[in-house]
Design a protein around this nucleic acid. Structure first.
Lengths: 110, 110
DNA sequence: CTGCATCCACTTAGATACTG
DNA sequence: CAGTATCTAAGTGGATGCAG
């Protein structure tokens, strides 16, 4: 087994797969990233339309976390009405193989 | 975008990536599957040692769900003391590329 | 050794209302 | 349009004890 022992911000032991889960895990993040990855750049509301059932609060929250982890980029236009665009960072794009694999597996094993 | 519209058991819309998340998502499942995938067959307690911090309750629960979804196989030996072995099913092994990718990404982007 | 049931603290997410 | 704050209901996981 080659998974190295790692430690999270609380000093708890983790293996590297747990780090990945911490970054892209949860109900919404994979789907958010999937859409940003396939569509390129999306405004807040456009993105929201791709996520049936997500609440306003959840979307902001998830986006903020993804931004903090360096996965997505947030570009704000200072205008009225406001306009904000989200896109994947370079680091974010490195996740696409995983997301593609997940998407494909889901389609095949439904 | 080629993600088809799908429906879950409650009639809610899902895209296929959400199904994958539903099956392998959460804090523990990817790590459980990772260990079963790399080590082959593991007894309950041996598996538990690989998951620092997991409680008894959580492990049973996660294993039961994975079994229900056809991802892992449970082999029980009727003896005292009990002995139960877990391993990946064929369907479970099809998840390994995803898990490998997650493991690798985590190691590279820590 | 493996698994289940109960209880309870804690976390999480939804609804709603408000801001620039 | 994009985001924040608060309140609260529901979900989740940990501790513990019991069983085969």
């Amino acid at each position: 087994m080659d998974n190295q022992i790692q430690v999270d911000e609380n000093g708890k032991l983790m293996c590297s797969i747990e780090y990945t889960i911490a970054v892209i895990g949860g109900k919404w993040k994979p789907v958010i990233l999937w859409h940003l990855g396939t569509d390129g750049t999306l405004r807040y509301n456009k993105l929201k339309k791709f996520l049936p059932g997500i609440t306003h609060k959840m979307l902001s929250q998830q986006l903020k976390e993804l931004e903090k982890d360096g996965i997505i980029h947030r570009k704000q236009y200072n205008q009225i009405p406001p306009k904000v665009e989200y896109s994947l960072t370079e680091k974010g794009y490195t996740l696409m193989p995983i997301l593609k694999a997940m998407h494909r597996w889901g389609a095949e094993h439904w």
